[in-house]
Amino acid sequence: MKLHLTLFVAGETPRSEAAVRNVERLRGLQGDVHISLEVVDVLRDPERAETARVMATPTLIREVPTPPRRVTGDLDDLRRVMAVLGLHPLPAQHTKED
C-alpha cells in the first residue's frame, strides 16, 4: 500500500510543528505502508492553497489513493487521523502523544 499526503501549514508555528511531528509519528508507526509527505507553507505558497481550496490550517490531504480525504487540525489524535486516511488502527497506547 502506498499513500501520498500533502500537509498544508501556515508558517513555523507550534501548531504547524505539532502537525508535522504527528504525521512523522504516524509514518513511523506504519512501517509497512509507504507514506510520502509534502509539506506546503501557505504563507509562502498561497496559490497552492487556492488550487487545493484549503481554508484551514493545518490541513492534511490524502492525495493517493483517491478519492482524496482531508483532516484539519494539529492531528493530536492519531487514531482518528488514521481512520480518516484508511490506515489500520493501532493499539490504543500508541495513538496519543505522550
Binding site: 492553497a49 487556492e50 481550496r53 484549503v54 482531508r70 487540525g73
Partner: peptide, 26 residues
C-alpha cells in the same frame, strides 16, 4: 471558499484560518 462535498474535512485538534487569509492576501 464555496463548499464542495469532497473538500469536507474531519476536524482533529486545533486549527486556524491562515490558509484562507493567505489566499485573500495573495
Amino acid at each position: 471558499a464555496s463548499p464542495r462535498p469532497e473538500d469536507q474535512a474531519v476536524l482533529v485538534g486545533d486549527f486556524d484560518l491562515s490558509a484562507l487569509l493567505a489566499r485573500m492576501e495573495a
